[in-house]
Nucleic acid binder design. Structure first.
Length: 479
RNA sequence: GCCUCCAUAGCUCAGUUGGUUAGAGCAUCUGACUGUUAAUCAGAGGGUCCUAGGUUCAAGUCCUGGUGGGGGCGCCA
């Protein structure tokens, strides 16, 4: 008999039909004559209740069923007598596909710590929290592609292995087929990369932006959505060595157009989650409230769904770096020296505490900061007339900080070339990038959205290692 | 990379000023119960108190090193 997914089954009302379900046991409750099995197949957060009349034939099977076991159940779709659900299954035949020894199976029908589950990453999909996150994550992947597709953006696959070592977005993982136990050396005693796979040093990409720009300067509007690798020794709740990034790049867009798109996209995907993932969001909301119940009232987060609706309701604040510095300089924590880093003068790099003050205390809304000092931003950003600032933008969200970083790109050949020289970036490695400014250059803009940071915000989780199935962080590569 | 906190039963945690036999809930096992909702009730088993040293009459508790983990900061998405 063909399997019916629990998500579908729970919506059916054609009671009396014989059906088949397959899934994993969450709990089993037994009394003398009847047993109840909560079965979950991951198609939805919800379980289906399998009702078993205990008799001599099924007694042995029932004793072998524990949390975590996988079953195939044939039974009659029935209107439930109990209170917790409308639909249930009266089991006619139960087959155990795989037992789960209760003495060894680590997941119990109870609350586990996220730290514990992180060490059981191979099984944590089977919990409500992690299956909910996985479903929301999928919905966001889908919503992002749909958002761009509806707006005539083309998805571009930019390379994962890159020969460019000048992207400036951070430390890179080197890719090599050289034998590290016996590295070939050249006449100067240095590594002979001519013997390596590509004949030159290769790395994993830290950004698809530069290649994305090449495509945008022909297709007008493109986006990338791919894995990104940073070999930074970052030990925080919001950094990964391997993460997924969405990078749209648009010809003929200035910084304002860029900020408009960023805000529209964030609101679109959040609305998509509210429209399509309500079961999971409600569960994640309860989970968050449960986790924060011991916190003081003023330290608790806004309720998750309320928070998401709140983001949709208001326009993001847009101010320049210069205006932000003024606000921060005059702020209470700055005057009372509560900030760890006191804002003294224009040009200072903003720390997390400053960004959080602006978003969480001062404006109480997402903030788009623009026009940063050129000294603290990347070489490719468009230089402003003032000679001091660049057309950069950071989108700052409550709790998670920087969710998007972007800019209008420098399209002027001479200015870009001068900047590359000034920063000692080898021009030989950037010739193809520079040529786009030589031939038919146009104003263009783009940004990078950290996908896992978006998922953090949407799920109310606080550690980025819990919103990607298999997190890669320094000293951690178990799964 | 820097700072900080934590490690007690399979899991979550309590364990007083260092004091005699280390506890609870859940899970497991046994029994009871005709429909339960992380079922309930009764009972049982389950411990290298992370590890190696040290202080002390006495260490789960204090000190030092190690290991593992959490959080904060920096880098950034």
């Amino acid at each position: 008999m063909r399997r019916t997914e629990i998500k579908i089954l729970l919506q059916r009302t054609d009671f009396g039909q014989l059906i088949n379900v397959k899934g994993w046991v969450r709990t089993k409750r037994a009394s003398k004559n009847v047993a109840f099995i909560a079965l979950n197949d991951g198609s939805t957060l919800k379980n289906v209740q399998v009702v078993v009349e205990i008799n001599d034939q099924n007694k042995d099977i029932l004793e072998r069923i524990h949390s975590g076991a996988s079953l195939s159940v044939d039974g009659i779709l029935t209107e439930s007598l109990g209170k917790g659900q409308k639909v249930e299954i009266n089991a006619k035949n139960i087959e155990i596909l795989g037992e789960a020894n209760p003495e060894e199976y680590p997941l119990q029908p109870k609350k586990h710590s996220l730290e514990f589950l992180r060490e059981k990453a191979h099984l944590r999909f089977r919990t409500n929290t992690f299956s909910a996150i996985a479903r929301v994550r999928h919905a966001m992947i889908f919503a992002i592609h749909q958002f761009f597709n509806e707006r005539n953006f083309y998805n571009i696959h930019t390379p994962i292995i890159t020969g460019s070592d000048a992207e400036g977005a951070g430390e890179m993982f080197q890719v090599t087929t050289l034998n590290l136990e016996n590295i070939p050396k050249n006449d100067e005693g240095k590594v002979d990369y001519k013997k390596d796979f590509f004949g030159k040093p290769a790395n994993l990409t830290v950004s698809g932006q530069l290649e994305g720009e090449l495509a945008a300067l022909a297709l007008s509007k493109i986006y990338t959505f791919g894995p990104t690798f940073r070999a930074e020794n970052s030990n925080t709740t919001r950094h990964l060595a391997e993460f997924w990034m969405i990078e749209p790049e648009m010809a003929f867009y200035d910084l304002d157009d860029n900020a408009d798109l960023a805000e529209e996209m964030l609101k679109y995907v959040i609305k998509y989650a509210l429209d399509n993932c309500m079961d999971d969001l409600e569960f994640l909301s309860k989970r968050q409230q449960e986790e924060e119940k011991n916190k003081k009232a003023d330290e608790r987060s806004m309720e998750l769904i309320e928070k998401l609706n709140f983001i949709l309701a208001e326009p993001f604040i847009r101010i320049t770096y210069t205006e932000a510095i003024k606000i921060l300089k005059n702020s209470k924590p700055n005057k009372k020296k509560r900030f760890q880093y006191i804002i003294e003068e224009w040009g200072a790099d903003l720390q997390s505490e400053h960004e959080r003050y602006l978003v969480e205390k001062h404006f109480k809304r997402p903030v788009i900061l623009t026009d940063y000092p050129s000294s603290i931003k990347a070489f490719y950003m468009k230089q402003n007339e003032d000679g001091k600032t660049v057309r950069a933008m950071d989108v700052l969200f409550p709790q998670i900080g920087e969710i998007i970083g972007g800019s209008q790109r420098e399209e002027n050949f001479e200015k870009l070339q001068a900047k590359i020289k000034a920063l000692n970036i080898p021009e030989s490695s950037m010739w193809w990038y520079l040529e786009t400014r030589k031939f038919g250059t146009v104003p263009h803009s783009g940004f990078g959205l950290g996908f896992e940071r978006l998922i953090l915000f949407l799920t109310g989780m606080t550690n980025i290692r819990d919103v990607i199935p298999f997190p890669r962080t320094p000293q951690n590569l178990e799964f």
